[in-house]
Amino acid sequence: KKYKIKVYVKDKKTKKWKKIKEIEVDTKEEALEAIKKLPPNYEVKIVP
């Protein structure tokens, strides 16, 4: 079972969220580790 991490950042001009990358991992633990490495201003969604 794979997890997709969708990473969004808020556009300063439009104030809208835009997706900047998608990370695919195998476990939820890996997903949480990957999220920890991202800057705090990123919004993250984990999709099972």
Score class of each variant (00 low, 15 high):
Leu32Asn: 06
Leu32Asp: 09
Tyr3Lys: 01
Glu30Thr: 03
Glu43Pro: 05
Lys6Gly: 06
Lys10Ile: 14
Ile20Pro: 00
Lys28Val: 13
Glu30Asp: 08
Asp26Phe: 09
Pro40Gly: 12
Lys6Phe: 15
Glu22Asn: 02
Pro40Cys: 10
Ile46Gly: 03
Glu30Gly: 05
Val9Ser: 06
Val47Cys: 10
Pro40Gln: 10
Ala34Lys: 08
Asp26Arg: 06
Ala34Gly: 02
Lys18Tyr: 11
Val44Thr: 09
Ile23Tyr: 13
Lys19Ser: 03
Glu33Ser: 09
Ile46Tyr: 04
Ile23Pro: 00
Ile35Ser: 04
Trp17Met: 06
Lys16Thr: 05
Glu30Asn: 04
Tyr42Phe: 11
Val47Glu: 12
Val47Trp: 12
Lys21Ser: 11
Val25Trp: 03
Val7Phe: 08
Tyr3Gln: 01
Val7Ser: 00
Lys21Ala: 14
Glu22Ser: 04
Lys21Pro: 01
Lys28Arg: 14
Ile5Val: 12
Lys18Ser: 05
Lys13Tyr: 11
Val9Glu: 07
Ile46Ser: 01
Lys45Arg: 15
Val47Arg: 06
Glu30Ala: 10
Pro40Trp: 06
Val7Lys: 00
Trp17Ser: 02
Lys6Tyr: 15
Val25Leu: 04
Leu32Gln: 11
Glu22Ile: 06
Asn41Arg: 14
Val9Ala: 10
Thr14Ile: 03
Tyr3Ile: 12
Lys2Glu: 04
Tyr42Thr: 07
Lys36His: 07
Lys16Trp: 05
Val9His: 06
Lys19Val: 11
Asp26Pro: 05
Lys28Ser: 07
Lys10Ser: 03
Lys28Met: 14
Lys2Tyr: 07
Val9Arg: 14
Lys19Asp: 01
Pro39Met: 10
Lys15Cys: 11
Glu33Leu: 10
Asp11Val: 07
Asp11Glu: 06
Trp17Cys: 05
Lys10Ala: 04
Lys15Phe: 04
Glu29Ile: 09
Tyr3Arg: 01
Pro40Val: 08
Glu24Arg: 06
Tyr8Phe: 07
Asn41Ala: 08
Trp17His: 02
Pro40Tyr: 08
Val47Met: 11
Lys12Cys: 07
Ala31Val: 14
Val47Ser: 10
Ile5Cys: 03
Lys45Ser: 06
Asp11Arg: 05
Lys1Phe: 12
Lys2Phe: 08
Val44His: 08
Leu38Asn: 02
Pro39Ser: 13
Tyr8Trp: 06
Asp26Tyr: 09
Lys16Leu: 08
Lys2Ile: 06
Ile23Phe: 14
Ile35Pro: 00
Thr14Phe: 04
Val47Gly: 05
Lys1Ala: 11
Lys36Arg: 14
Lys2Gly: 12
Glu30Leu: 09
Val25Asn: 00
Val44Phe: 12
Ala31Cys: 11
Ala31Gln: 02
Ala34Glu: 15
Glu43His: 15
Lys28Asn: 07
Pro40Asp: 08
Lys19Asn: 03
Lys36Phe: 04
Ala31Arg: 01
Asp11Ser: 11
Glu33Cys: 07
Lys37Ser: 13
Ile35Lys: 04
Pro39Gln: 08
Tyr8Gln: 00
Ala31Met: 14
Glu22Ala: 02
Lys28Trp: 15
Glu30Gln: 12
Glu24Asp: 11
Lys10Pro: 04
Lys15Trp: 02
Ile20Lys: 03
Lys19Leu: 15
Glu29Met: 11
Lys28Glu: 08
Val44Lys: 03
Pro48Cys: 15
Ile46Cys: 09
Ala31Pro: 00
Ile23Leu: 09
Ile20Ala: 03
